[in-house]
Simulated scan of single mutants.
Amino acid sequence: MEPAASGASVTLRDVAAASGVSLSTASRALDERGPVSRSAAAQHVRKIAEELGYRRNSFASSLRRGETRTLGVLVPRLSDTVMALMFEELERAASDRGYFAMVATSGDDPEDERRAAETLLDRNVDGLILATARLDDDLPRLLRKRGVTHALVLRTDGVSPSAIGDDEVGGYLAVRHLLDLGHRHIAVVTGPSFTSSGVGRLAGARRAFDEAGINPRQEWLIAAGYGIENGFTAGEALLGGGSGKRPTAVFAANDNIALGIIAAAHRFGITVGKELALVGYNDTPLSARLSTPLSSVRVPLAQIAGTAIDLIVNPGKEPHIRKSMPTLIPRESSGAPRRA
């Protein structure tokens, strides 16, 4: 069969006629929103459509149904490995459900966040997924008030539908691991105090300390940003005390912070994994590839992404928060035995 001439517009009616089927049968065979039909007729229609150069106008058909099959995703920044990985998983999960995901970045400023959200809403997205929520953030409340379909991911305000890791369990696992290795002088560098993830991971660390009967030194509990430079600054404060006592172990509330602490330890001639035990969080791909592989708490990003998309496309009657369970991955940075 000859393909359509250059510039010609092949319609669904053309495909149906060339396939010898009804218009409705051709439409069902080419509908990408549900499971792909494997029937001989459907495969024949798809083969003819490809030969003719037919391109389904999913945007127009979605508009006729009052939807765009597009979701907006708002992240603080894509230079953050976790946020980039999270968006990739959200994009994949959206595609599996017949949706397209587009991303916008906002930094950590609430005004920038609101502007970015409005930009996505101006594109007529069917819902918003926010990885930017602050505990003091007004945006989720405004979205609820306006009736905008949305879900929070990785962070929660405790009210809007949310798909998150269980940060308190993760913080507990990290510090419990260090305690089980015999450490008693443990520092914790948490994420920002305006994030539920930072607050939750610190709460889990405190629970582990309480179980062990340990009252951590206040100057060893540092709230920082989630960047490498934040970890380096915290590492300098913890490890550069001269004759003062320094911690023998550190729980860093994400892997970027841990990388900064590694850099600070190197500056002071401290060997991570021998003189200093270190546990990170999120188990980003680089963690296992460092010269001293980093112990880290693994978060099931794919599961969280799928849950977030489902909260958008199949919203329940009541807002709810779904937590996915993290897992500790011990490696050499905490003094765990080298794996074969």
Rank of each mutant, 00 (worst) to 15 (best):
D136Q: 04
K47E: 15
R69E: 00
L143D: 02
E113W: 05
S61R: 12
L63E: 06
S58V: 15
R123V: 03
V73E: 08
E113Q: 15
R115E: 14
A117D: 09
E89P: 01
D96T: 13
I48K: 10
D136Y: 04
L78N: 01
E91K: 01
D112E: 15
R92L: 10
D108V: 14
R64D: 04
T105K: 12
G66M: 05
R65F: 03
I48H: 10
S79C: 02
D112C: 10
L74T: 01
L135F: 01
P76T: 05
A104W: 02
E51V: 08
N57E: 05
G147M: 05
L63T: 11
S58W: 10
T149S: 13
E89N: 08
P110K: 01
L52W: 13
R77C: 00
D109A: 06
R123W: 06
R115Q: 14
S95W: 12
L121T: 13
E67Q: 11
I48C: 09
T81R: 00
P140M: 09
I129R: 15
Y54R: 04
E111K: 12
L52P: 07
L121I: 15
S95N: 13
G53E: 03
E51D: 11
R69A: 07
R65E: 10
N57V: 11
F87K: 04
R115A: 10
R115S: 10
R97Y: 03
D96P: 02
R46N: 06
E89W: 00
T132V: 09
K145T: 13
L130R: 14
Y99D: 04
A60C: 07
S61H: 09
G127T: 13
G66W: 02
L135A: 02
V125M: 14
R56E: 09
D138C: 08
D136M: 03
R55F: 08
K47F: 04
